[in-house]
Computed example of a mutant assay.
Amino acid sequence: MNTQLDYINDLLEKDSELRDKIRDEVHDLDKKTRVMAGILNKLHSTPPDKVAPLLDSVRPIIQSCQKNSSALAEIIPPNQFWRWKDMWSFSLRNAIFSAALVEYMTSRTLISLEQVSATLGIDDAWKDKFALTAEDYLHALITLVNELSRLAVNSVTMGDFDEPLKISTFVKDVFAGFSMLNLKNDTLRRRYDSLKYDLKKIEEVVYDISLRNLHGAKAQEVTPDPTKSSE
């Protein structure tokens, strides 16, 4: 009996040690995602000609996430991916979101699952220990659309009337892609439903720009005269 209890106690101690190692690595990844989120939030108040340097400051941080991916893959025992996955899902989704936003702002395209895996240094050979699931990827894309709906509104405030039109085209394509998926995950399904509100918000911004014929206009051309009261 004592031998059996000792064996069980040894297993519990090993699990506790492994959990602590994973938590430390995830904590470091989480710190990086918070830094990236803070920098990327500046997009909402950055003129278009200053966006490139801002994105350049994020790329090295994204690259450094490869160390965390490699470390987690080394820590997790074989065939235990699903056992520990929940410990890093939130942080990984935030890292995917940052990579996706940088890719959109750079190339105006959607980063693929394979691209983001390569960007974060996630090797397919680790799939039984540490991998990027379609669910985590889709959650990050929904966060991307949430952020772009904010950017569409704030771009107008910055006097950039072309950005909302670009965002509208991109988000409509993403929404069309989501519409073809058979989403059975309740959380993912609820978050997908929120995309309809983001799309509506963006369409309202685009409609207002079109109605006022501001497409292609410069900020100074439409800046109201502060000495004149609004009608």
Rank of each mutant, 00 (worst) to 15 (best):
M180E: 14
S117W: 03
L18S: 05
R150A: 01
A52Q: 11
L211R: 15
K21L: 12
R59T: 15
P60G: 09
Y137D: 03
I76S: 03
L40F: 01
Y137L: 00
D86Y: 09
L43W: 00
F130S: 08
K201I: 04
K14R: 13
D128R: 06
P164R: 03
D24N: 12
T169C: 06
Y207H: 12
D15Q: 15
R23K: 14
S149T: 07
S168Y: 06
L144F: 03
E231Q: 09
Y197A: 10
G177H: 08
D20Y: 10
F130R: 02
Y137F: 15
L54M: 10
K184Q: 13
D136K: 04
F170N: 08
A95D: 07
K166L: 13
A219D: 01
R212A: 14
D186M: 07
R212Q: 14
I122C: 07
K85I: 02
E114I: 01
N68A: 13
D136W: 02
V174E: 03
I22C: 09
M105E: 10
F178P: 04
M1T: 09
S91F: 04
P164H: 05
K201G: 05
E13C: 06
E147C: 07
R212P: 02
L18T: 15
A140E: 01
I75S: 12
L29N: 06
L12G: 02
L5W: 09
S230V: 08
L55Y: 08
T157A: 12
T157P: 01
I96R: 03
K21R: 13
L40D: 02
E221G: 11
D20W: 05
Y197G: 05
Q220F: 15
E74M: 07
D128Q: 11
D10E: 13
T119I: 07
E221P: 02
M87D: 14
A176I: 06
A95W: 03
V51R: 13
R59A: 05
N41M: 10
E204N: 11
A99D: 02
P226G: 01
T169E: 15
L110A: 14
E231C: 05
S194W: 02
D225T: 00
F175N: 09
R191W: 12
V116C: 06
I167V: 12
Q63R: 10
L92M: 14
V116D: 02
S155F: 11
A152Y: 05
A176L: 09
L18M: 15
T187Q: 03
L141T: 01
K31S: 11
A140V: 06
Q115P: 02
A37P: 01
M180P: 00
H215F: 09
D86H: 12
T169F: 11
V171T: 10
P164Q: 04
R190A: 12
V153E: 14
L183H: 01
A219Q: 08
S230N: 08
H215S: 13
R191Q: 11
E25M: 12
R191K: 14
W84Y: 14
E17G: 02
N79D: 14
E25I: 15
D30A: 11
P48T: 04
L211T: 13
S210R: 11
A134E: 15
R190N: 12
Y7G: 00
A71D: 11
F90G: 03
D24Q: 09
